[in-house]
Structure formats: structure tokens, C-alpha cells
């Protein structure tokens, strides 16, 4: 058993190297020409066709918004899974728990005495003041990154995670009565669901107008408005989702 336990890390390392080699092998073995047509096309025409000034946003919402749907689904599944695990554990995480009084009962002595950790003590005045004051500023920056994704670096995902950081700051900085306003778990859950519904509805909009699933509706005109709308919706969904996860881990969710 012991020898087996010692061999396990070596086996894991060998397995990882083999898998990495199998994945990287095609890159090394075949040196055919790298496909460049699409990249060149997007570089020369992308900004003009989409009307955006940030090529990254122009591509990921103007040309391949369908992939973006997949990315948001991955995030949704990850958040749902984590929330499900937290809820199934049947406990809120950041509670002030005490250990059963069994000091010395297991193989003896003071060394076994558990270190008591008080979760409530995490909230010092310093953290509350700094996060409470910084939260709205971070939130504002997040909304800026989200709404100006077509002009400056950023976009829905980037702005969304900054918004989530702002929500976490607000949740940490709310004195005494946490979980109010934007940092309440039920509000965030509803916001995430609404954002995802709006994203899918936006996808079907193109289907209804005949341009295709997740293609900008109103063929012929600039898809800039569609890009801004999708950025906003994705930002709200991502921000609310990750914020919800963090607030739930803080131990103030009511899971309903």
C-alpha cells in the first residue's frame, strides 16, 4: 500500500507527459502552411464591417457570437455545479464553528488541539471601510469596460468579472447586515437567469429576421448596436454569475 502510494505521483507525471506529447505532437510533426486567409480578411475588413473599433470585440460578437454562447454555457454550468455542491454540503461555509470537545481523545496530547478560527473575525473595520468605499468604484469601472467593449479593450466577459469583483467588495464592505441590494444572492441569481435568457433571445432575433442564429439582425446595417447589446447582456450574466458564486461562498446565500 505504501509503495503503491509512492508510485502514484510518478505514474501521474508519466501519464501527464504522455498526454501532453500526444496533444503537442501534431504541431511539431506537420509543418504545413498555417491557415492565414481568415485572419487576414478579419484584419483588413473586420473593423469596417462591424463598425467597432476594438477588433477583439468585433470578432467575438460580430462574427462568432455562437461560440460566445458556448462560453457562457460553460460558465453557467460551472457556477451551477459549484452552487449545487455548496447547497448539497448542507452548510454555509463562513460560519463560526466550534470543534467537538475531544481534545486528547485521539492519539493524545496538546498537539492534537485544534486551532480555533473565528470566521466573524475576518471582518475587520479596515476591510469593511476599504472594500465598502472601493466597491462602487470597481463596479463603475466594470460597467465602463462592459459598455465600451467595442471601443476600448474589454467587453462583456472582462467587464463582467470586474463587476463581480465589485459585487464581492460590496458584500464584504456592507456593515452588519450583509446581503442587501446588489450583493443579495437571490437578486444575483435572478439577474444571471435574466441575462442568459436575454442572450438566447438575442440569438433567436437573428433567426427571426433571416440572417441566422446569433448573426446580427437587420442585414445591411452596421451590427454595432447588436455588439453593444450582447456585451451588456453577457457582462450582466457573467458578473451576476460569478458574484453569486462568491456571495454564496461567503455564506450568506439562501439557496432558493
Amino acid at each position: 500500500m505504501n509503495a503503491q502510494a509512492k508510485r502514484a505521483p510518478v505514474a501521474a507525471a508519466v501519464l501527464s507527459i504522455l498526454v501532453a506529447a500526444a496533444i503537442l505532437w501534431p504541431l511539431v510533426a506537420f509543418d504545413g502552411p498555417w491557415p492565414r486567409e481568415l485572419g487576414a480578411y478579419l484584419e483588413s475588413r473586420g473593423l469596417e464591417e462591424s463598425g467597432a473599433r476594438n477588433l477583439v470585440s468585433a470578432i467575438y460578437l460580430g462574427y462568432r457570437a455562437y461560440d460566445t454562447l458556448g462560453e457562457t454555457i460553460v460558465l453557467l454550468v460551472a457556477v451551477s455545479g459549484a452552487i449545487g455542491m455548496i447547497a448539497a454540503a448542507g452548510t454555509t461555509l463562513a460560519i463560526d464553528y466550534s470543534y467537538p470537545a475531544k481534545d486528547g481523545a485521539v492519539d493524545g496530547g496538546e498537539a492534537e488541539k485544534p486551532i480555533r478560527r473565528k470566521a466573524k473575525k475576518n471582518r475587520t473595520d479596515l476591510i469593511e471601510v476599504v472594500t465598502g468605499k472601493l466597491g462602487p468604484v470597481v463596479l463603475l469601472f466594470g460597467f465602463y469596460v462592459m459598455l465600451f467593449g467595442h471601443v476600448s479593450p474589454g467587453g462583456g466577459f472582462q467587464g463582467g468579472v470586474v463587476v463581480a469583483s465589485g459585487i464581492v467588495f460590496l458584500a464584504l464592505g456592507s456593515k452588519g447586515k450583509p446581503g442587501g441590494g446588489l450583493s443579495s444572492a437571490s437578486t444575483l441569481a435572478k439577474l444571471e437567469a435574466a441575462g442568459f435568457a436575454a442572450l438566447i433571445a438575442g440569438g433567436f432575433l437573428g433567426l427571426a429576421s433571416g440572417t441566422g442564429f446569433f448573426a446580427p439582425p437587420l442585414a445591411g446595417t452596421s451590427p454595432l448596436g447588436f455588439i453593444i447589446a450582447l456585451n451588456t447582456v453577457i457582462g450582466l450574466k457573467v458578473g451576476a454569475g460569478i458574484g453569486f458564486l462568491c456571495v454564496a461562498m461567503l455564506g450568506e446565500a439562501d439557496y432558493d
Partner: peptide, 23 residues
Amino acid sequence: DVAITEAAVGAGVSTVVYVWAIK
């Protein structure tokens, strides 16, 4: 764009999640 994401997710949110899990 990637830098903003990495800073917000890696240095911000995931650190918060890890610290809470450790606590």
C-alpha cells in the same frame, strides 16, 4: 483584453474563492 480578464479572474475572484475555502 486578456490582461483585464486575467487580472480580474486570477488575481481577484479566484483568490477570494480560495481564501474562503481555506478559511
